[in-house]
Amino acid sequence: MTLRIRVNAQEHDVGAPALTSLLDVLRDHLNLTGAKKACGRGECGACTVLIGGRPVLSCLTLAGRVRDEVLTVEGLGPEWAALREAFAEHGGFQCGYCTSGQIMRAVALLRDGLPADRDEARQKIRYEMSGNVCRCTGYNGIVDAVLAAAP
């Protein structure tokens, strides 16, 4: 079937079977390989993208049911440059494989806002980002990066 999908402010018509995951559409059809298939079962968060501004697991999202615009790490505008730099500056990644998912989760979290209190903010980041597994950093660097990018 042909499905029409809006990704990173561009419309695409994609020919794919009905149950194709959004992740496969992004990676195989649109050549947006930032989102990773690290488990393909919704258990690790490496495929996180935003749909209508909300964080979802693209590996378990059927592309044919996507109604709102998809935003992937490749589509982040300059307003998120500080967040990307914070990941580099604070040790927010090592191997980088989970990073696209971490950043997209962080984007949604930062849009929702963090508590003013630093300790509470840290706690909230840790809780809200627990769906994004990282095996390298031990999470310190990710929490520091997100906190540093908060307004």
Binding site: G34, V73, E74, A88, T99
Partner: peptide, 12 residues
């Protein structure tokens, strides 16, 4: 900063 950070944080 780690070499390659721009590519890693932009998904490329």
């Amino acid at each position: 900063r780690p070499i390659g950070w721009q590519a890693i944080t932009s998904g490329t």
